[in-house]
Design a protein around this nucleic acid. Structure first.
Lengths: 154, 154
DNA sequence: ATAAATAGCAGAATTAAATCCGTTTTGGAG
DNA sequence: CTCCAAAACGGATTTAATTCTGCTATTTAT
C-alpha cells in the first residue's frame, strides 16, 4: 500500500492534534469531510495509525524524575532475555525498554516521582529481575526536546 | 490544585484512547457527560493534559531504525550548551534530546529510515553541530516496550 | 484510442455527540 | 438543622460524524 501526499498530510496533522474534528482535518488537508474520514479509517485499519493518546504532564503527576538505565544481562541462558522482557513490560514506571547493540543489553526509560522512588525502582525491582548482572543510570537534568512526532516526508 | 479519583481516572482513560467520545469517557469514570467534559476542559486548561496525538507506525513510514546517541560537548564555553540545544530541536529525525548527568552530556533519541540515513544524520548533521566533541551510538534491535503511558496512581 | 470498471470525491440526509441551561443533589460550615 | 456553595444531572439545542447517492477521474483491456 502506498501513501499519497494527502495521507501523509493527515498523519502529520493528527500527530499535532489527535483530537481534531474530522471537518477541521478535512479543511486542512484540502478535502471534503467524507473522503477525509474514509482515509483516516483506512490509515487506522492498515496500521499506519496505531492509536491515539492524551499527552499528560509528568511533572504534575508524581513522575517528575526521568531516568535512563542501561541494563546488562548474564548471557548464560537464552531464556534470560525472554524472562527479562516479560518482567520489565509489567513495570508501570518503565515507559520504554529497548534491546540495543553495543556495550550493554537493554536501555530502559523510566519516570518516577523522585530520587527515593528511583532508588527503590532500581534496587528493589530492576536489579532483582532475572538475569540482570549490572546497570548504569543517567538522570535527566533537562528535557530539551520530547516531541514524539515522527517526521512524515512530504 | 488537587486531583481527585475521577480526575485521575480521566487521565488514565485518555492516555489509553485520546479520541474517546465524551459520553463513553463519562460512562467509564462514572459520571454524566456534562461534568465529565468540564473536568476534561479543566485538566487541559490547568496543564495536566498538554495535548493529544495520533500514534503512527514508524516502521511503515521510512523511520524503521531507532537509535540512541550519546553526545559529548566541549565545555569551553557556556554558550555551547545553548547552541547545541537550539540546533538539535530543529532536527526532525530527533524525537527526544535530554541533558543528562554522567559520562556524557546529551542523550538523543532519533528515528531514521535505515543505516544509510543514520550515517548521514550522524556524520553530516549531529557531529557538525556546534561544540560536539564526541558521540556513541546504540542501535535498537528490538523495541520491547514503548508505551509512553504515564502511571497515574489510583 | 476508447470503453468499461474501479476507486475516489462532493453534497445531502441521517444519526450521534458536544454544548448549553435550568434544576437538583451533595458536602461542609455555622 | 439549615443554609450556602460547588458539583452533577437531564433535557434541549447546536454542531459534528456517519451514511447514502450520484458524479468524476483514473486505470486497464480490447
Amino acid at each position: 500500500m502506498e501513501l499519497d501526499r494527502i495521507d501523509r498530510s493527515i498523519l502529520r496533522e493528527l500527530q499535532k492534534d489527535g483530537r481534531m474534528a474530522n471537518v477541521e482535518l478535512s479543511r486542512r488537508v484540502g478535502l471534503s469531510a467524507t473522503p477525509c474520514l474514509e482515509r483516516v479509517k483506512r490509515l487506522e485499519k492498515k496500521g499506519y495509525i496505531k492509536g491515539y493518546t492524551a499527552l499528560v504532564a509528568p511533572e504534575k503527576l508524581k513522575a517528575a524524575l526521568l531516568v535512563f538505565v542501561e541494563i546488562r544481562l548474564t548471557r548464560t541462558s537464552p531464556d534470560v532475555f525472554e524472562d527479562f522482557k516479560k518482567s520489565v513490560i509489567d513495570l508501570p514506571q518503565v515507559l520504554e525498554c529497548h534491546l540495543v547493540s553495543g556495550d550493554f543489553d537493554y536501555l530502559v526509560k523510566a519516570r518516577v516521582a523522585d530520587m527515593v522512588a528511583y532508588r527503590n525502582l532500581l534496587g528493589e525491582t530492576l536489579l532483582t529481575l532475572p538475569g540482570v548482572s549490572g546497570s548504569r543510570t543517567y538522570v535527566v537534568m533537562e528535557e530539551v526536546k520530547e516531541s514524539g512526532i515522527i517526521e512524515i516526508p512530504a
